[in-house]
């Protein structure tokens, strides 16, 4: 893409800003910040990737993956920031999901062990798992508002924390996996995923692009399941106090 073409993309920002001003949405400042941040962040990661691809030093790959996991854990954890220790649990979950997925992809030689493959695929896995973790936490908060009576009834009957919360956990795990599974059902018919689109735009054969997209879809399904189940198992105790009472009603996170 030429520099002129790149600069021309600002026309889309102008449309957004124009509509915001015209309709008095008051979003101009956010649009400006969003534009500048996305441009800077993408340029930054572009140069970082350029450097890492050149040096091919595994230390840099690990550093990038760790920072992805850290940022994703911090972001997903803000869905339940009143639950102490949740960010650490999310980070552990994302690291395990990423580690297992990469081990399988590399172990079966599905992708090549080069930064060009490892970093983008990891980004997709960690990003998608972050969303799954966020949905899971939001759903758990809703569950524990709505099903407080159920949990307390089971506690009053001598149930352990795990027994008392398992219904809510199961429903939340299901909810957090549904968007990924629904995405599998409609991919190609409703939406053309970014990776496939990017490959086609960059000149790849559409069939080759589709093969990679299939890989990504299946990887996303397993990483959603791994993330939701692992996070639910290592974090269920955090919803209770030390003496196994439910923590006081956390405020609902209204952000979608």
């Amino acid at each position: 893409m030429s520099n002129l073409a790149l600069v021309s993309t600002l026309v889309f920002v102008a449309i957004t800003a124009f509509l915001s001003i015209r309709k008095k949405l008051g979003l101009e400042k956010d649009i400006l910040i969003g534009t500048v941040r996305s441009a800077l962040q993408l340029l930054f990661i572009g140069y970082v990737l350029h450097f890492v691809f050149d040096t091919r030093n595994p230390v840099f790959i690990v550093l990038i993956l760790l920072s992805m996991i850290g940022i994703a854990a911090w972001n997903a954890g803000s869905r339940a920031r009143e639950i102490r220790g949740i960010r650490l649990r999310i980070a552990i979950t994302l690291a395990c999901t990423e580690g297992l997925t990469m081990a399988l992809l590399l172990g079966f030689s599905i992708i090549e062990p080069t930064p060009q493959y490892i970093i983008p695929v990891s980004g997709i896995v960690i990003g998608s798992s972050m969303i799954v973790a966020g949905i899971y936490l939001n759903q758990m908060k809703r569950e524990l508002e709505a099903s407080r009576g159920e949990v307390e009834t089971l506690l009053a009957l001598g149930g352990t924390a795990k027994q008392a919360i398992q219904g809510a956990v199961k429903r939340s795990v299901r909810s957090s996996m549904i968007p990924t599974i629904d995405g599998m059902k409609t991919v190609g018919l409703v939406q053309l995923p970014g990776m496939m689109t990017g490959m086609i735009v960059a000149g790849a054969d559409p069939i080759e692009a589709v093969r990679y997209q299939m890989l990504i879809m299946f990887v996303l399904a397993s990483s959603a399941a791994l993330t939701a189940i692992l996070l639910s198992q290592i974090s269920y105790r955090l919803w209770f106090t030390k003496d196994v009472r439910l923590v006081q009603s956390p405020k609902q996170d209204t952000k979608s």
């Binding site: 506690l155 009053a156 009957l157 149930g159």
Partner: peptide, 9 residues
Amino acid sequence: PEHWRKKIS
């Protein structure tokens, strides 16, 4: 707690 609650419900 679960042992206690099993006795006092």
